[in-house]
Structures are given as structure tokens and as C-alpha cells.
Design a protein around this nucleic acid. Sequence first.
DNA 1: ATTAAAACATACAGTCTGCATGTTTCTGTG
DNA 2: CACAGAAACATGCAGACTGTATGTTTTAAT
Lengths: 200, 200
Amino acid sequence: MQDKNERRTNRERSETTRAVLIDAARKLFIERGYAETATPDIVAAAGVTRGALYHHFEDKKALFAAVAEAEAEAVAAETEGAVLDGMRPREALIKGGEAYLAALAQPGRTRLLLLDGPAVLGRAGMDEIDNRHGTRSLRGGIVFVVQAGGLPRDLPIEAMTQLLASAYDRAALAIETGGDADAYRAALAMLIDGLAALCG
Amino acid sequence: MQDKNERRTNRERSETTRAVLIDAARKLFIERGYAETATPDIVAAAGVTRGALYHHFEDKKALFAAVAEAEAEAVAAETEGAVLDGMRPREALIKGGEAYLAALAQPGRTRLLLLDGPAVLGRAGMDEIDNRHGTRSLRGGIVFVVQAGGLPRDLPIEAMTQLLASAYDRAALAIETGGDADAYRAALAMLIDGLAALCG
DNA sequence: ATTAAAACATACAGTCTGCATGTTTCTGTG
DNA sequence: CACAGAAACATGCAGACTGTATGTTTTAAT
């Protein structure tokens, strides 16, 4: 029955199966959300069986975590690509934020990363993922600005990073549901410039 | 069989049943979260049957929405209670925020209102609830400060309200998971004072 | 009193998740 | 290259849950 089936190493089999599962799951999670996506649909789209899914992932949540990780990495990559070497610190922050909003404008990403993610994995679980990807560059940007003397030196870096990240996330959500994108961009810029103004 | 059953009006029957359902659901949603709470458990705790539940609520989501509404109202009440009449605008904002964080420190409230809420009802659905309660006073506070000349006049009120609310929410979540509360309070104050500094 | 309607209870159908148990494909060793 | 043994995958099953359809009781209205 396995006529032209070229022989594949176990590692190859696993990796492709995992990849095809994550891809199919990502598509459905983005289209319908976590709760409305059933594992039978995922495996059907992936062309495998539920046995394979539960062989590679502990449960549905673990598969979701893998998808969220991949998506967060993609968003981080798109974001960092927008920050060029020559930029001034403040400019880098603004441009990076801009790119972050653009990356999250991809349909379904806000639901996956900002709504389902925290609910399914918990805020702590989502923080772990974010800290491996997106938040890193934001925190880096803030540190950069502080060092350049553009932000107060007594600023609690970690906390402020979280708050600004959260503001950007909310802006992305609001924009997606029809909010005034320019108003949110302006408000974000004012938050950053306001911090800078504290240096006076 | 209904020996000493005093006769109750239909309205009374409905209202008490709805109330007892919402109370039981709130307790369980707060303890275990939305997804891990089954309707059989809710009705058992409430002392009714699933028939009653589905008579009064369209589905589990609708019951959750009612719970979230009640909880948001409670948080708003606690928050507004902390803002006294004589306060200066900035002080009112800070104190109100403080009270908001304290209200959200009640166990399970962050999960209910900040994690499950947006995931189950969507950000838009949660906004509707928030706009009926908590966000109103925050927006009012911001308008207040702007009018007092303490914030830039070209500030996009609606967007900034959302961003600051989001920052407070994230602070509440971070504090609950062991974050440095003082750092977050300081960071929030810096965001507000930074905006004020833009008036220079 | 009697009939309608609202409130509530019971029963059922369909679906989903996670696991236990097969079967196939690869890996390592003599 | 034969042949265990393990890894990868498939199939089948048990328990649980949601939403609805249908029954029963309590209130309302004439």
C-alpha cells in the first residue's frame, strides 16, 4: 500500500506532522476562535487523525500555545523589521509601534493573541510567550530611550513596558472594531511624548 | 405537595430565580473560569434545573454576560466611592485608579472581567458593558482634567480613555500575578503626569 | 371554573475531549 | 539483513456538556 512512499526519517515525520497541525489549527483559530474550533475540524484540515494530534500535543490547549507562539514570533519579526539602525530612539519606538499595529491588523490576529490567548493560557502564560518575542523589542526600545536621556531615569522599566504594550494592544483591538486609527496613534504618541516631557 | 408554599407572583419567581442563577454562576465563574464551569454545576449550586436556566437565558454566554454586567457595576461602584467631591482633578484620577486596582484585587475578578470577558463576549461586547459602568467615570475624570487645563486640549478623549483603562487593567493583572504593585502604581502616575507635562 | 400563558423540570440528540488500545513505520543491534 | 523495540500514527470508546424539545406545575385572566 505504500508503493511510492519514499522512506522518511522519524524526525521528518514528526516535524511535518506538527507543522501541518499548527498550520491548520492557526487557520481555524484565526477564522473562528479557540472555543468554536473543534479538534476534529483541525485534524481534517491537516489531513491527519486525532490520534496524531494527541500524540504530538498534550491537549488542545498545548496546540493552541504552539500556534500562539508561532504567531507572536511572526508579529515580532514584522515589527522589528520596521526599526532601522539609523533611527533616533523616539522615532524607533513610534515606528516600531506603528509596525506592531500593522502586524496585528492581519485578520484574526488580535483575537488569537489578545483575546483567546490570555483567556486560554492565562495572562502569565501569555507573558511568557510575549517575553520571548514582541515585548523584548519594546522593552529594548524603552531602555534605549531612557539611556538616551529621553525618559525619566527612575522609570520602572518592566512595569512601563507592560503598560505601554497593553496600550498598543488595546489600540489594535479598538482599531479593528472600527475605532479611529489616527486618534489612537495620536494618543499613543502623546503617552510616549508625555513621558519624555517629564525629563524637562 | 405544595403545603406551605406561599403564593408568589410570576415576577417574583422570575427575579429570584434569575438572581440565584447569577449568584451561583458568578461564584463558579470566579472560582474556575468560564470554560471550566459547566451549566449542570451552576444549576446545582443555584438549586434549580437547567430548564430554568435556559428559560431565563438564551445560552451560557448570556448568563455570563449578566454576571459580567453585575460585576462591572460592583467594581464601578467601589471605584466611584473613592472619589470625593473636594478632590483636585489629578488627585481624583489617581485615587480613582487606586480604588479601581483595589476593586479588581478581589479574587477572580480580573479573570472574569479582563480575561474571560473579552474572550467570551468579544472586545466590543465588553466595551458595551464597560461603557455602562467603569469607563464612564474614567472618561469623566479625564474630561475633568482637560477642562481644568491639566491635559492637552487636542487630546483624543475616547482613545486616551481606552488606553489608560487598558493600562490600569494590565496593571491589575500584573499585580495579581505577583508583579511589583508599587512599580505599576508609579508607572501609571507617570503616564498621567507625563500627559499633564505636555501642557507645559 | 376554566383556559391560556408563564415558569420550571425532564429527557434526548448531537458533539466534543481525552484516553486506551490497535496498527504501521522507522531505528538500532547483532 | 533479520528482528525486537520504540516511535508515529489510527481507531474506537467512555464520559461530559450544550442546547432543544417536550412534559408538568404554578400563576394570570376572564
